[in-house]
């Protein structure tokens, strides 16, 4: 059996879960089914608001699903497992802690904040080029640096699964490319098509809300990947297939003009 099995997952938000803003229950996720292996990088690609975040939160055990099953490493996820890492769209660091203590936060919660943990935190921060900023406070760092700290925080407890919700969405183009390379070096969700193709082993494409899996595609690019790979025919082909599945590009064999549709791609 695959490491991660997502089967017929459905989520309907009831009114008491979302407050009084909606008049009727919202079907956020209709039917999501796909599998992935351990160590595999999977990108969820779909229009804005299609339920990718909802699926991530279900897989993370933060919210309950309405139907279907999510099994990670043979365990059915019904509550947080404690050994997953999370990266959010915003860095979401604690302003009252310095960089090192922000990274060590998961170890404190897990009561494993020992010398080995500190060593690992140092290693991670060095890997992302922030070893000179251990005692800096978040507000002294740029957005890209803050997100790198958040990435280290998500990795410090050696999670079995790393869930990332548009982790580079709030960054500028150049910083985002740097972060992509960084992530490749370290070795999952993104909305940008080329980013997904560049980073992933597998891309799962979602339809508009309520989301269903429209297409699952393997990315055949070899490792190590560098920015050069973006200009190879294999990359362009994969990016076009993904774009067609999303409806960003009309699915014709010729070079059909891309019409901007349903807010897919970068925002």
């Amino acid at each position: 059996m695959a490491f991660g099995v997502i089967k017929n997952v459905r989520k309907v938000f009831q009114l008491d879960e979302i407050g009084w803003t909606a008049l009727e229950p919202v079907v956020a996720l209709d039917d999501a089914t796909f599998e992935f292996e351990e160590g595999e990088l999977v990108a969820l690609l779909g229009p804005s608001g299609c339920g990718k975040t909802t699926l991530l939160r279900i897989v993370g055990g933060l919210i309950a699903k309405s139907a279907g099953s999510v099994a990670i490493a043979g365990r059915e996820v019904t509550k947080p497992m404690g050994d997953y890492g999370f990266v959010f769209q915003a860095p979401s660091l604690m302003p009252w802690r310095n960089v090192l203590d922000n990274v060590l936060f998961p170890m404190e919660i897990l009561r494993k904040n020992d010398a080995a943990a500190r060593r690992h935190a140092h290693e991670l921060l060095e890997l992302v080029g922030l070893s000179g900023f251990l005692s800096a406070r978040p507000h002294q760092l740029s957005g890209g640096m803050q997100q790198r700290v958040a990435l280290c925080r998500a990795l410090v407890h050696r999670p079995r699964l790393l869930l990332m919700d548009e982790p580079f969405g709030a960054l500028d183009e150049l910083t985002r490319m740097e972060m992509n390379d960084l992530l490749l070096r370290i070795r999952h969700e993104t909305k940008a098509i080329s980013e997904a193709v560049y980073l992933s082993d597998k891309v799962v494409i979602f339809s508009k809300r309520p989301a269903r899996v429209v297409k699952e595609m393997a990315i055949p690019l070899a490792y190590p990947r560098s920015q050069k790979v973006r200009f190879t025919p294999a990359f362009t082909a994969a990016e076009r297939i993904a774009s067609e599945a999303l409806g960003v590009v009309a699915p014709t064999a010729d070079e059909a003009p891309a019409h901007a549709a349903q807010g897919a791609g970068r925002q």
Partner: peptide
């Protein structure tokens, strides 16, 4: 309190 920080803590079974 930022929602993300609460979710982060919850994900670690705090």
């Amino acid at each position: 309190t930022p929602k993300e920080l609460l979710e982060l803590a919850q994900s670690l079974n705090a």
